[in-house]
Amino acid sequence: MTLHVRRAGALDCAPMADLLNQIIAIGGTTAMTQPVTGDILAGWMTRSPRSLWHIAEDDGGTLLGFQYVQPHPKHGPKVAQIATFARVGRTGLGIGSALFEATKTAARAEGYTWIDAEIRADNSSGLTYYQSRGFEDYGRIEGYRLGDGSLVDKRLKRYDL
């Protein structure tokens, strides 16, 4: 299988929402608890001109994953906040690695100096993924309230560009 990574556009929002909703429905790996629509993702995509969205697809154009960074709301304009999602059952195929290479290059070009990742402390695959990309621990959020009211801890990791 050959992976193709490219910048995401408005027409990718519905398939990205479908992929993300499968992850949300399973639970345990994302802080999101409510389904999203393509229109919601399109709004997120255009929230900032410095948002950078990439998708990975196979030779047939099937969406395998997506990743985005956007300006971090608390750390200032030089810091990007990242989110990564891979199709259920398709992890471990290099999707996240390919996406991060594209994101890293685009984030540097956009003038970001580091990338922040906030990962649920109970998301072992997410923690492993970001650790394997070179992200380092820098903090923790205890008792983060999810949209459904449940509490989780989050690990904070950073990647210096």
Results as ranks from 00 to 15, higher is better:
D122Q: 14
K74Y: 11
E110C: 12
E57D: 01
R158M: 10
P77I: 02
T103G: 02
E101I: 12
A107D: 12
M45A: 04
E101Y: 07
M45V: 01
K154Q: 09
E118T: 13
R133H: 06
P49N: 05
P15H: 06
R145F: 08
A25Q: 14
I82V: 10
P15I: 08
A42P: 08
G143D: 11
R108V: 15
Y159C: 12
S51H: 12
A83K: 07
R133M: 09
I23G: 00
E57K: 14
A109P: 14
D160M: 10
I23K: 02
P15M: 04
Q22G: 15
Q34H: 10
R87N: 10
R140M: 04
S97D: 13
R145P: 02
D153L: 05
G89C: 05
E118W: 15
R50E: 00
H72C: 06
E57A: 08
K154G: 08
P49Q: 02
L156Q: 11
I95E: 03
T37R: 06
A106R: 10
T33M: 01
G43C: 06
G96E: 09
H4W: 07
D160S: 07
V88P: 11
I82S: 11
R47W: 08
A25M: 10
G139F: 11
S51F: 07
A14D: 15
S48R: 11
N123G: 04
L161M: 14
R47M: 07
F135H: 02
A25K: 13
L52W: 01
I55V: 14
F85R: 04
E136K: 10
T29I: 11
